[in-house]
Nucleic acid binder design. Structure first.
Lengths: 205, 205
DNA sequence: CTTAACTCAAACAGAGTTGTTCAACTTATC
DNA sequence: GATAAGTTGAACAACTCTGTTTGAGTTAAG
């Protein structure tokens, strides 16, 4: 029941990170994370058994590194979203015209998102709502800040609440990812469509 | 394994609708459908036991009317989507300016969608992809027809593929529903925001 | 009021899951 | 090459879910 949000590391039961991990352990953890991302993308209900097999690792080893299914999903979500957050920071949230900044951000984080959208979807529905919110809060609040600035500058519409604009962005990114998944768009086409649609959806009328 | 798409009726094993159903059976079926909608909205993984309890019937009775969990979900989706399809037809797909028609359609089907979005989400993920597609095909193709006409008339943008515009509508409706669910919008606010956002997202640039 | 339709609780079989323990084996690392 | 860290399959307990059967009880409908 207690949230073990010792984020960033894959320490299952050790309270303190203890010392360095052995090289093969490190390798296995990487393999598990990759396999899990791919498994959850294919099937949101993927079992620990499937994931261990896909990672080429015994089930016991999997539990050795991630104490529960939930811990694994939480770690996956944490990593994916913090990658995006890093890109967000690197974009320079508070500089340049807000609409240009958003555009740049979307473009530079698209590959990341495209790769992880389905896994994130799985995590979102298997994790308690509160945990999901915690993981998102960084990105969402940064987006909110960017959009709010854009409204003040006149680049974005202010006839609708900022939170709605944020979730518009969120929803359209999802939709673009789904189209790629369904084979109706290539990744590049999806990005272009997303870009064009966001531009007109957010611009002041 | 065989798809029993004898849609519209809740006949579990009877091949032919045989004769009328008894009044109490009819009543229970209605209670089950209502309870299931509400249960799946709260928890996409709701079990048959939960649903039977919520409907105030025995589990055996539930299985008596719906031969499997899948059959129940399929019936729910069928009913919800055909309600929407009915509204779509009633809107007069091929008359008047396409943007006005879309607007009218969204407005008149919003309550229906708002009520059922979460249940539909649950059904969508529990049913085989093919079945989901079959249920949607009516609405999606009608939407596609409307949007294609709108593009020819110059009301909607034609710099992006029609299927993308359709899924933009779909995604934003979802997002609006989620905002209501999250308590950040009332149903009316969400509808207004949806309306305004769709207008600018679909208009030609 | 009689019959056929319907309901129900309890109990069952079967399949899947999660997470743990054990005892032997392999591999990094110093 | 010794030792500690890491891995492994097998087996286990506990649980949840699905779908079915049974036999007795209830209720609508003619």
């Amino acid at each position: 029941m207690e949230s073990e949000h010792r984020s960033g590391a894959a320490n299952a039961r050790r309270g303190t990170p203890t010392h360095p991990r052995r090289a093969d352990a490190e390798r296995n953890i990487a393999a598990i994370l990759a396999a899990a991302t791919s498994c959850f993308a294919k099937n949101p209900n993927a079992s620990m058994t499937e994931i261990a097999a896909a990672a080429g690792v015994g089930r016991v080893t999997l539990y050795g590194h991630f104490s529960s299914r939930e811990a694994l999903l939480s770690e996956l979500m944490e990593r994916a979203l913090s990658e995006v957050a890093t890109v967000l920071e690197a974009t320079g949230l508070d500089e340049g015209p807000a609409d240009e900044t958003l555009r740049t951000f979307i473009r530079s984080s698209w590959q990341l998102l495209d790769r992880n959208l389905r896994m994130l979807h799985a995590a979102r529905r298997a994790l308690p709502a509160e945990a999901v919110h915690d993981h998102h809060v960084g990105i969402l609040s940064a987006m909110d800040r960017l959009i709010t600035r854009g409204r003040q500058e006149g680049a974005f519409r202010d006839d609708l609440p900022a939170h709605w604009l944020v979730s518009t962005v969120y929803a359209l990114v999802q939709a673009a990812g789904d189209q790629v998944e369904a084979g109706r768009f290539t990744s590049e086409e999806a990005l272009d469509a997303l870009d064009a649609t966001l531009a007109s959806a957010l611009r002041r009328p």
